[in-house]
Amino acid sequence: MLIALRKVVYGVGFLILALMPLQPVLAQQPVAVVYPQVDERFQFIFAEMLKGIESVMGEPVRSYVLPAEYQLDDLDHWLDVQDIDTVIALGGSSSRALAQLNGLVRVVYGGTDLSVSRGGSTGISLMPDPKLLFERLRSLAPEIETVTVIYSMENNACLIEKAQQEARDSGLTLEAIPAGSMKEAAGYYRRWLKQLDVKKDALWLPMDRITVDQSRHFSNLLSQAWEREFVIFSSTSVHAKRGALFSLYADHNALGKSLARMARRQLQQDAGDEGIRPLLEVKSALNRRTADHLGLRLVPRQIRSFDLLFPRRY
């Protein structure tokens, strides 16, 4: 009995292994995915997006792994040989490479450093939609009236423009302060800290390499927030883990699905550019310890509406 069972187990395992090489040749979609070659720990991001894309396409899609030192001709040749109409570009380097191909194929961008734009391209930025951030803020801390954000024109001008409208719609006032450098941003943070009303003011940390320092600067802001009990929320997932009240981060699978649907629309003859929209496919993280410290009395329904809760250890 055991020997027979063992043979079945081994047999099924080897059969699956043997059949695997057949899988890639099944795909004949005119859509392909280009994603960068990255460290295995970062590959989870693209693997999840790929799963989302394939679930919409209904079958495996062809993909091109872009090396760190890539040759544009190689990519061009591959797209040509594969007879690809539309490419989903995942990651910054893929987006930059495909942008250089000057319209030889239609591209749907899902890049890491994309700025939100109204036209010229089609894709989804990885910057969470401010509307979703403000909705969360209103739900968790309804007494907040003013949100301050210090941002760079270079990275976030269009997003902040959208955020102004979304803030008004949410009954909030957005004080958006542009800064050209980290030093300038630090000055604005100091000034804001001096004048803030901890009950009514909150600080939004956008995804911005110029105005949001990930290390010492952020730690200092968090310490101040703990001591003086004011709200910090963020567009960067790790910030909730480190002590911000909440943050939003990409739902990679859902993002992949949306990119695939965009790509399908692009396949149609008369499809125009849809612009780069902010990320709506988000998951959310809450720091319960910070919420408790701020005296926010959250009901179970509110807590359950978050995908991740910190601290994770107990």
């Binding site: 960068p36 970062f42 995804m207 960067t236 995908d307």
Partner: peptide, 28 residues
């Protein structure tokens, strides 16, 4: 890290967060 990886790090904060963000929720 490559530039791509540095961008991803900016987005997620650290390598552990990528694993958490692409994984499943743990019950309390």
């Amino acid at each position: 890290y490559s530039r791509e990886e540095q961008d991803l790090l900016l987005l997620y904060g650290d390598e552990e967060m990528i694993t958490i963000a692409t994984g499943e929720q743990q019950p309390l």
